[in-house]
């Protein structure tokens, strides 16, 4: 367990890959953040707290970032701010965060079972056929062998476990 990279001390090292130590707290990130205008996510504050090693796993604002990369693109110090948020989410998921949205779990399950986050519905099948597309696309979702392999691959990766545990706790 001491090797767990997501323990706060080790995790600080991971975050340093996003160059958060270069941050001078200028606020350019928060200023241009479309989500920050409509919710209480503050990228600058997140980076500041992350620099200090504050455990952010329960901060619900992590899930308001639309990953538009405005902040990362404009950061004068080259901090990969959006990447840092993604790392923080990864950690929150592992460390028992209660804030991640239930619909995400649905999407993950749908991907495992059907190969698509948005699976095909009968209504759309109808539209497809009317406009002259094959009723079902020639994709993984509609090929039994590929889908089986795919499900196996996801299970190997273990992503579902991360969220299922969560479900159990809830």
């Amino acid at each position: 367990m001491s090797e767990d990279p997501y323990e706060i001390e080790q995790f600080k090292k991971i975050l340093e890959d996003s160059k958060i130590l270069s941050c001078v707290q200028c606020g350019k990130c928060t200023a241009g953040c479309p989500a920050g205008r409509q919710s209480r996510i503050r990228i600058r504050e997140l980076i500041h707290l992350a620099q200090d090693g504050v455990d952010l796993k329960d901060d619900p604002s992590l899930w308001y970032c639309t990953t538009c990369y405005n902040c990362q693109e404009r950061c004068p110090k080259g901090v990969d701010t959006t990447e840092a948020v993604i790392y923080l989410r990864n950690r929150a998921v592992r460390k028992g965060d209660h804030n991640f949205p239930p619909l995400h779990v649905t999407a993950i399950k749908s991907l495992r079972d059907k190969g698509d986050g948005f699976p095909l519905s009968p209504e759309v099948e109808k539209i497809r056929s009317i406009i002259g597309l094959p009723i079902r696309p020639d994709d993984l979702a509609h090929d039994e062998k590929y889908l089986k392999d795919f499900t196996k691959l996801i299970d190997e990766l273990g992503i579902l476990k991360l969220v299922e545990n969560k479900d159990g706790e809830q």
Partner: peptide, 18 residues
């Protein structure tokens, strides 16, 4: 034989490696 890309917002946020 493509699956979902998979959706960056959901899946990357949960596990970058997946």
């Amino acid at each position: 034989k493509y699956s979902c890309c998979p959706a960056p917002g959901v899946f990357r946020g949960y596990d970058r490696n997946t």
